[in-house]
């Protein structure tokens, strides 16, 4: 599983905002080109980012294996044609090249995930998006992070209890609505208790955030983001 890992790489020392800028610019540049030369350049940039963030390629690919299956199937479906010649290699290759850049985008985003703490991302979101939407998004991300494992345990308990009572023998709709209803009522019970606690602590639109600061290291990162962004229009 991909997650933040404590380390001291250059990527770890960058401000999350410059890393997000690089991510978005890279995705934009990758999604606007499929030529062979562009893919070679994008591969080189990806390799650089992965090295800078200390990412293991194999572990990352295995974390994204679900996405990779469809990316691998797409060229086969594209190449298959109804009627002679049955297999259109050029069509399949075009789709394979398009799929390859998606793999690069996923790899680069692993560099962000590995090198950025959730609370830093949250602060970056909250500082970059102005006003109440930014506040809600920032606090919301923090709450999702906090409650994700709690609700995972809830869902696990619901499924185990249901299996112990032969719930696995029931029809698919029955099972789906059982997990859906119980999962949601429990989550909403928690939400209502949480909102009471938030109100008791004067939940406000203007709380104090962790400090973020750009350093000299961020200048080259922003330069890369701008260059990649410009590359989108080449």
């Amino acid at each position: 599983m991909l997650s933040y890992e404590h380390d001291d790489t250059i990527a770890h020392r960058l401000d999350p905002r410059s890393k997000l800028a690089v991510q978005i610019a890279f995705a934009a540049a990758a999604l606007s080109h499929t030529s062979g030369r562009a893919l070679v350049a994008l591969t080189a940039i990806t390799a650089l980012f992965l090295t800078v963030a200390g990412v293991s390629i194999l572990r990352t690919l295995s974390a994204y294996r679900f996405a990779l299956v469809i990316i691998a199937i797409a060229p086969l479906v594209s190449a298959a044609t109804l009627g002679p010649p049955w297999i259109d290699v050029a069509d399949g290759l075009e789709s394979a090249r398009a799929g390859y850049r998606v793999v690069l985008v996923l790899l680069v985003s692993a560099a962000y995930v590995r090198s950025t703490r959730i609370r830093d991302s949250r602060a970056a979101v909250q500082r970059t998006i102005p006003g109440k939407p930014g506040q809600l998004l920032g606090v919301g991300i923090a709450l999702v992070f906090r409650f994700f494992p709690v609700l995972q345990a809830d869902v696990r308990r619901i499924r185990q209890a249901s299996a112990a009572r032969l719930g696995t023998e029931r029809g698919a709709i029955d099972r789906a609505s059982h997990i859906g209803l119980l999962g949601l009522t429990r989550a909403f019970d928690r939400a209502d208790r949480l909102s009471l606690a938030l109100r008791a602590r004067c939940f406000a639109w203007n709380p104090t955030l962790p400090r973020l600061s750009f350093t000299r290291l961020d200048a080259p990162a922003f330069a890369v983001a701008v260059a990649l962004g410009a590359g989108t229009f080449l």
Partner: peptide, 22 residues
Amino acid sequence: AGAVGIPVFAGFSAGPGVLFGR
């Protein structure tokens, strides 16, 4: 939440790239 790295997407994946992926 998924974009900033909480593994909420299918197969416990996360990261900004997933939003631009397949």
